[in-house]
Structure formats: C-alpha cells, structure tokens
Write a protein that binds this DNA or RNA. Structure first.
Length: 586
RNA sequence: GGGGGCGUAGAACAGCCUGGAGUGUUCGCCGGCCUGUCAAGCCGGAGGUCGCGGGUUCAAAUCCCGUCGCUCCCGCCA
C-alpha cells in the first residue's frame, strides 16, 4: 500500500484505508482508548487505538518512527480539533508497526520551549524535527526555487564558480585551505564570486546568477556566520536601474512565495546621505518613524558649552523624539552608557512634562528660546522622551540611529519595509587618514573628475537593499575600463606592482572588449530569516556554527594527524600545540 | 581583542541580592489508574560534581578571583 502524507488527510478521505508513516509526536493513553499524534513532513494526524486490541500501543514512546494502517473516519461530533488542518478526521488503527524505536530525547520536540543553543546544535537532527525549524527549511527551499524560477524566466544563466580561489587580503579575512601539491601555498574560500562573475560578463554570458556559498573569517553576530549563502547576479549592458528592477522582482517573488503578499513596487529609494541624516544608518528600518532632526542652528550662540563648542569645532547637534518611554534614572544611565560605547562623549536626554516644560539634567544650561526650539523641532508632546547628541556629523547621527533602533525596533518581522539605499560614497577615510573603498574596489564612480579631485566626497554607483533594518545585500555598476580600475587601485594606495601581482589577470581580462556591467548579491539566509520572522540566521541555516565557530555535533574544527600536516608542510606553533593539551570543558 | 547576560536533575526555570543539610515548580522519564483526548488527567517513584578550578568562611549554588562554554553587543565584517 502506498503511503499517505499525514497532513494531507481530510474529510474527503473518509472511508478509505491509508498507511501513514512518521514519528510519534504525542501519545495520550486513556486506558480504554489511546490517541497517537503521528507527524511526518506534511503535518500531523491523530491515530486512535484500543490498547486492548493493540497491545503495542502502550510501548510507543515519543519520536518512535512508526507506520500505521487504518481507516480514515470522521471524528465524533464535538471532538474535532479546529487548530489542526487534519482536525476533522482520524485514523482508526488496523495495524501499527514500529519501524525504529527512539531513546529518551535530550529535549522535547516542541516549538514552545527555548532550549539551550548548544544542546540544539548537538542534536540538530532532532531540533530540525520541530515544526518551526521544519517550516524554516521548507521556506528556504521555496525561496531558492522562486529565485531560480524568476531568473530562469528572464533568461539568466546559472553558473557555478570555484570555491577554491586565490586569497585577497583586502576586506574581510579569508578562510584558507592549504595546498598539498604546492606545499606552503594556500587557496582561499571565496568571500564572493565577484571577479569570476565579472569575467563571465567578459565571457559574453550577459545574464548570470548563482546561489553561492560565501565565506568570511570574521567574528559572529546574530546575522553573521563563517559561511553563508548569497544570490549572486550580474548583467551586461546594464545600468543601476536594470539591477534594481531585477532584484526587486526576485525579492517580490520570494516574499509572495513565503508570505503570500504582494509587495508594492518600486521600493522607496533613499540616498546614502539622506539615510544617514534621517535615520543615522545606511540600513534604516522604515517600519517606524522618529527621524533624526538637525538642531544645530538653535545653538550657535548657546551658553551651553558642550553644544557651542561642538558647533565651533565643525560638529553638529542632532535630536530625536523616541516617544513615550518608561524613563527611570537607570534607563537614562544605561542609554548614556550605550551612547558612549558607540563613541559618543555623552547623551542629552529630556522628558516632556505635562505642562510642556523639559525635564533634563542640562535644562538649566539652556535658555527658553532654545528649549522651545527643541520642542518644536522634535514635535514634542507630554510624556515624550527626547535624545540629543552633539558630535561630528557621522558619530552624532549614528549614535541616535542606534538608540532609535534599540528603543523602537519591533522584535518580530510582521510588517515588511523594503527599500534601496543609493549613491553611496566611493571611498571612506579611515582614522589613520588612509582611504579605503566603501563597497569594493571594482565599483564604478559616478564622476571620474570628482574621484580624482576629491576622492573622499566622490559618489559611487553602489546601492544596498534593506529590509526591516537588515542589510540584505549590495551591488554596484562595475568598472569595465582597466585604466579606471588602475586609477582606483592607485587612490586606494595599491601600487601598480601590487595591483598587477594580485589583480593583473583581471585587469588583463578587462582589455578584451569588456561590456559595461552591473550586479548585485543578497544574503539568502538574511532574507529568509526576516520573512520567517526569525531574528537569527542560525534558525534558517540547517547546520550552523556557534559564536566561536564550532559545530557541537561534529566537533569541527578538529585537530588533524601529524601526517596530514606533514603532507601540507605545516608546523603548528607552540601556542597552538599548547591548546591541544587543554581538556575540552563545557 | 573588549563589554553585558546566562550556566542548578534529561529539558525549561526559581532559589543567589541578605551564606546555614540539594530545597522547589513545570515538562520529560519509570510504575499504576483511567473510553474522546489533542501541551489529556489523577496517584506514586527515580533522577543533582548547582559548568570547572581556586579563595574567603565554622559553613558556599549563594560572596571573591580565575577559567571554559552559550548568547547579545562594540571593534571587525569590501
């Protein structure tokens, strides 16, 4: 007899004999009657047995893998379960077979319990049996299917690029793989297929995409793992808007697939400058207001030294109204600490009293006109909490932008707010005065003259996609002229010899009739995370690593045999060897 | 590299501030009862190196120091 998916059974199946195979989710044994919830990948069905007839029912434990054959029947009136898609019917047992028993579980297969993450990862195969995790796995599969469907319809070619590539020390730290055939040399795992996809444009592919695993050896966050998956995409003869339209189409299709809703297009666009000014970040969360306001002009002549000195030094004074907040002293203190952690010298806070006056430790330093200006500028109403930062522009807006998120950002992702951030700076000036790229060194400037004359103010043809304050990914129009590419390397302080050694092969390729091209890459983990309402990408990655880069199940990374190291020509340092002697402790 | 939170039975927690016998709750597990439950219910039982190491003390889950692990954040992440 063929097997029926448990979750598919409905009233229309009443009277038919079916076989369902799956796992015992729950057993409710009433003595004279026993209910067994059988779960498979499709859902759950209730099985009803008389323990007197089916003695083996008493032996069924949670997560036993079983097979049940019986007749579908309507549940007696009043016992239907409206919470279950199959809740109108049940299987009256004919036969039960245990396919595979299960040991007592290390934790319950239940969405309602938060289990220690180490235990979940140690038994990830059990963790993935939880409905929520199963739903996340399926969502991810449907997301990639929707991506392929959308791009295939537009004539894109899916091309696989190598995952053993040369190391590029710029940007993130590379994951390295030693070469056996060439002792002492290393491959790197790709941080992105960037240069290969540009070569595919040189190769005449015109429309390329790949669902590519990428690797960056940097510290973890809730939205960062060593390895992650990107939709990587590139098109020839494209300008920015061709990319934005294509990516929007993909994001809309995936959202439709996972959420069943039609996102309004086109997505809003903010310039980087506007995004920083209004939200203090290049990945603003547009689900809520409380924008940052420039209050500098109120304080040009201020008697409050912190403000007037900041302005005299070329800084700025920005404010934000974070609305109604519980505001005990401890909250103010911890927020001030947070602002300092972010680099601010301090944080000014004010609470609007019922009579409209402002209660604040600094109120006594401000004159009435200044206080009134703050109230007006921040549209203050009684009970509102106002925050102000006085600092150089970027720091001031970033601090307020972070506090805005800390205080107001919804924890779940029920609403969706997509947007584009465009017109990023081409370069960034670092604290030591050197110039680095802000996107990557293959990004086209808007103006060559501006790039040469005033590099730190030059605008690039780079853009980011943002969803609910999460940076999904970024892209740019690329440089297709080898001379321009050399100029960019020059500005970045990469001398011609170094440029040739590292990128000569690429610069050479650009000389053979390279089409203008542009592209994008977005993180599939992050997109699925938000659409599934999760706040960590580990929930949508089947087998993630812990924050220290360990897989508690397989114990990777592990020590390898001396002979393996010898073959690779690798000696461990004393420091590494001493770690080897330490016992692993929890 | 730095800061915060957490670590107590198989799981989730309370207990810690203010030291006094491993005390408690829910779930799971074992045994028993139970014919319409769906996180079934009722009765009984087992189960503990309070992460690890050191210190203070007559006495440490509790206070102090160190360390390991998990996690969030800063740095970092083109």
């Amino acid at each position: 007899m063929t097997r029926s998916p448990a979750g598919s059974l409905r009233a229309s199946d009443i009277g038919t004999t079916v076989t369902v195979s799956g796992w015992v989710q729950r057993r409710r044994d009433h003595g004279g009657i026993a209910f067994i919830d059988v779960r498979d990948a499709s859902g759950v069905i209730q099985v009803v047995a008389d323990p007197a007839e089916h003695e083996s029912v008493a032996d069924l434990k949670m997560e036993y893998c079983i097979s049940v054959t019986g007749v579908i029947r309507a549940r007696p009136e009043g016992t239907e379960n409206p919470d279950l898609p199959t809740g109108g019917v049940e299987i009256g047992v004919g036969e039960i077979a245990v396919l595979s028993p299960a040991d007592t579980l290390p934790f319950m297969i239940d969405d309602r319990v938060d289990i220690d993450e180490r235990a979940r990862l140690r038994y990830r195969y059990l963790d993935l049996r939880r409905p929520r995790m199963g739903a996340n796995l399926r969502a991810r599969s449907r997301a990639t299917a929707a991506i392929r469907r959308t791009l295939d319809e537009q004539g894109f070619l899916e091309v696989e690029t190598p995952t053993l590539v040369n190391s590029t020390p710029e940007g993130a730290r590379d994951m390295l793989v030693p070469s056996r055939l060439r002792k002492g040399e290393f491959y790197a795992l790709p941080q992105s297929p960037q240069l290969f996809k540009q070569l595919l444009m040189v190769a005449g592919v015109e429309r390329y995409f790949q669902i590519a695993r990428c690797y960056r050896d940097e510290d973890f966050r809730a939205d960062r793992q060593l390895e992650f998956t990107q939709l990587d995409l590139e098109g020839s003869f494209w300008d920015r808007d061709d990319v934005l339209e294509t990516i929007e189409g993909v994001l809309v299709a995936v959202t439709k697939e996972l959420r069943g809703i039609d996102v309004t297009r086109p997505f809003p666009r903010l310039t980087w400058q506007e995004s920083m000014d209004r939200f203090g970040t290049d990945k603003p969360d547009l689900r809520f207001g409380s924008e940052i306001v420039d209050l500098s002009e109120l304080f040009g002549e201020s008697g409050f030294g912190v403000f007037s000195d900041t302005l005299a030094a070329g800084g700025t004074i920005r404010g934000i109204n974070v609305g109604q907040q519980d505001w005990p002293r401890s909250r103010a203190d911890s927020l001030t600490e947070r602002a300092k952690e972010l680099g601010a010298k301090g944080l000014v806070w004010m609470v609007v009293e019922d009579d409209g006056s402002l209660r604040s430790p600094v109120a006594k330093f401000l004159v009435d006109a200044e206080l009134a200006g703050i109230r007006d500028g921040l549209d203050a109403k009684p009970g509102d909490v106002l925050l102000m930062a006085a600092d150089r522009w970027k720091l001031a807006v970033e601090v307020l932008g972070t506090l805005r998120n800390d205080l107001l950002r919804p924890s779940a992702h029920e609403d969706l707010a997509f947007l584009w951030v465009i017109d990023f700076p081409l370069f960034e000036e670092q604290e030591d005065g050197t110039i680095t790229f802000s996107h990557h060194p293959f990004t086209s400037p808007v103006s060559l003259d501006e790039m040469r004359d005033n590099p730190t103010r030059a605008i690039s043809k780079a853009y980011d996609a943002v969803l609910n304050g999460v940076e999904l990914g970024s892209g740019s129009v690329r440089i297709h002229d080898p001379d321009v590419q050399r100029q960019v390397f020059d500005i970045l302080g990469i001398d011609p010899e170094t440029a040739d050694r590292r990128f000569g092969w690429f610069l050479e390729a650009l000389r053979y009739g390279t089409p203008p091209h542009a592209g994008f890459a977005f993180g599939i983990d992050r997109l699925v995370m938000v659409l599934q309402g999760e706040t960590s990408i580990r929930e949508v990655i089947p087998f993630p690593k812990t924050q220290s880069g360990v897989d508690p199940m397989t114990a990777a990374p592990t020590w390898v045999d001396e002979t393996q190291l010898e073959e690779l020509g690798i000696d461990l340092t004393e420091e590494a060897m001493s770690r080897r002697e330490l016992p692993d402790e929890d």
